[in-house]
């Protein structure tokens, strides 16, 4: 079956022949490898996308069920670096970088909805994004700095 939806601000469609995830469709059919495939069980957050204005794990979204929905991936967060990406870049808040796209999507959603989050809110928002290099200190410092700028 063909599904149609909005992807990063433009109409998109995909052919879905099996109960595959949105993540698989993004990476394998639509040429958007920014969302990473790691745990496939919603534990790690590396595949985070914004679906109908909420951050979700795209590995747990059945592609056949997104008909008519709006999806934003890390590739669709705007031209160049957005303020979250800029803050992470400046703070060196990247080690191997594999979790970074998921963290960028999750943190961008946080700052969109709550421009001046406190530390607890930052940590809570990122509770579903695992950095296996354990680089959390720099990530939280980067986002704390951004929240202070916003203040």
């Amino acid at each position: 079956m063909i599904i149609t939806f909005e992807l990063n601000g433009a109409p998109a469609s995909a052919r879905v022949m099996a109960p595959v995830s949105l993540l698989d469709v993004l990476r394998d059919q639509l040429g958007l490898p920014g969302s990473k495939n790691v745990c496939e069980q919603g534990e790690c957050g590396s595949c985070s996308v914004i679906l109908d204005d909420e951050v979700v794990c795209s590995c747990l979204v059945m592609a056949g069920d997104i008909e008519g929905s709006t999806v934003v991936t890390v590739e669709g967060l705007g031209e160049g670096l957005n303020p979250v990406q800029e803050a992470l870049h400046r703070a060196g808040a990247v080690q191997c970088g594999f979790c970074t796209p998921g963290i960028v999507v999750t943190a961008t959603d946080l700052f969109t909805k709550r421009p001046r989050p406190d530390d607890d809110e930052i940590k809570e928002a990122l509770a579903g994004n695992i950095c296996r290099c354990t680089g959390y200190g720099a990530i939280v410092r980067a986002l704390r700095g951004l929240a202070e700028v916003e203040r």
């Binding site: 919603g42 957050g45 951050v55 979700v56 794990c57 747990l60 999750t106 509770a127 579903g128 994004n129």
Partner: peptide, 9 residues
């Protein structure tokens, strides 16, 4: 329950 991503879905 889970994480923010899981609670949203």
């Amino acid at each position: 329950v889970g994480s923010p991503q899981i609670r949203n879905a």
